[in-house]
């Protein structure tokens, strides 16, 4: 464990909590892509199947349970509890365009052709594109509430910190996980456009982010 990975996990946790609290307190999921949240729940489900078979550390197990619980709670709030505030008419990204290539690639490129390893690889590739429906929804509506942009900031920051973690681990323990690194770089690149808007618009105190 190093400071970059810890900061990354904390940033990820903060992002998930920001979103969950926003939906819970405003009793609305307007402007939130339910599809992205379902994809994230799928990412955690397929990645943490080793929750009961492999024990890494208390921290690892606790965080896996927390991420699974919070992501399913978020999906529940969107599709069940506050479903009448869900903007399904704006959440129209075709997720099959993400799932098919990701499934194909995880069968082609993986560390071992075993169910657990292929599902882990699937979760890594899926996470890189899971935010697409949310970013698409924002471009479609042309705006995002500032709290939603803070959620996206911490979500994008988490994988950027993981890249620093991978550089650190390569230099200190000559460890590298190529699938995770390539996918993590792609994932972070997808956030760059948002980061630019975030720093130039939201942090200028302009409340919600309106796209040009």
């Amino acid at each position: 464990m190093n400071v970059f990975r810890l900061a990354g996990d904390v940033s990820h946790l903060v992002a998930i909590i920001i979103l969950l609290l926003k939906i819970w307190r405003s009793k609305s999921c307007a402007g939130i892509s339910g599809k992205s949240q379902v994809l994230f729940a799928l990412v955690f489900t397929t990645r943490y199947l080793d929750l009961f078979t492999v024990f890494i550390s208390v921290y690892n197990t606790v965080m896996k349970v927390v991420f699974l619980a919070l992501s399913y709670a978020t999906v529940y709030l969107i599709y069940m509890r506050f479903r009448n505030s869900y903007n399904s008419e704006n959440d129209t990204f075709r997720v099959e365009f993400l799932l098919v290539p990701v499934i194909g690639l995880s069968f082609l490129e993986n560390y071992a052709f075993t169910p657990l390893e292929i599902l882990w690889t699937f979760s890594i590739f899926l996470e890189a594109v899971a935010i697409m429906p949310q970013l698409f929804m924002i471009t479609k509506t042309g705006e995002a509430e500032s709290i939603t942009t803070h959620y996206l900031f911490f979500l994008g920051l988490y994988r950027a910190l993981y890249i620093a973690n991978w550089v650190w681990r390569y230099h200190t323990e000559s460890f590298y996980d190529l699938i995770a690194i390539v996918s993590g770089v792609v994932q972070t690149i997808f956030f760059c456009d948002f980061f630019y808007l975030y720093f130039t618009r939201v942090l200028r105190g302009r409340g919600k982010m309106t796209l040009p």
Binding site: H12, N60, K64, F67, Y162, Y176, D177, L178, I179
Partner: peptide, 10 residues
């Protein structure tokens, strides 16, 4: 090995 047998990252 270069890749993680048991993936120790979240």
């Amino acid at each position: 090995a270069d890749e993680a047998e048991a993936h120790d990252e979240l």
